[in-house]
Computed example of a mutant assay.
Amino acid sequence: MITLRTTTTDDPAFRELEAEQVADVMRRYSSDDPGPSVHGGLAAVVAEQSQGDGDARIPVGCIALSPLGEGRDGEAEIKRVYVRESARGQKVARRLLAAMEEIAREGGTRILKLEVGQMQPEAVALYTSEGWQRTDCYGYWKDEPLVICMMKRLDAFPAAAATA
């Protein structure tokens, strides 16, 4: 059984999963540039899987939310979406994304953005199926040809629709 736990990017479980996510992306792109790290203290959600023996839970997925810079009030960025291979195929990423969209909505975010790469077709398919649309690229990776930037207007998807 997989449960979601709201936390921050300072959480050791989040940091462990983030390191795995960075290594996975660097491997996919044959890169030695991890890009900018995620700041501490940001909203995060960690997915945990029961191990069958009481309260033992293993972290299997993560997601974080980072506000976008000055002059971009009401905009935030989804960061470090990752699910361990052992938990893939169980809709963990979809659940993490829905949980973070609700946290963002409750915090007044109207527009979410993210960066993903062409070498992550499963992620692009997930975001597209959840109502994300391509947008102009921004940020650290904006000039990289394999980067795809996407956005989702949260006011176009009311909370009731997001949790249905």
Rank of each mutant, 00 (worst) to 15 (best):
A76I: 05
A123V: 07
E75N: 03
R95A: 15
E144H: 15
C137W: 00
E70L: 12
V45G: 02
L114P: 04
T7Q: 09
Y127N: 06
G108T: 09
K79L: 13
I58L: 15
L154Y: 10
F14N: 03
K91P: 00
P12M: 08
V22W: 01
C137L: 02
A156D: 14
A43N: 12
A156V: 09
A123H: 06
R88T: 07
M1K: 09
G40V: 07
R105Q: 05
R5C: 14
E101Y: 06
T163S: 15
Y140M: 04
L146D: 14
A160V: 14
A98F: 03
Q120G: 08
E75F: 08
G35Y: 04
A98H: 08
R57Q: 09
M1H: 11
I111S: 01
M150Q: 06
K91L: 04
R94T: 14
Q90E: 13
D33N: 15
D33E: 12
E130P: 00
L4R: 12
A76Y: 01
A64I: 11
G41N: 06
V147T: 15
Y127C: 05
R27Y: 04
A99N: 02
R153M: 04
T8C: 10
R105M: 03
R57N: 02
C137A: 14
I103V: 15
P36V: 11
E16M: 12
T3G: 11
P158G: 01
E20V: 08
I103P: 06
S66F: 01
G89P: 11
T6Y: 05
Y29I: 08
E85F: 03
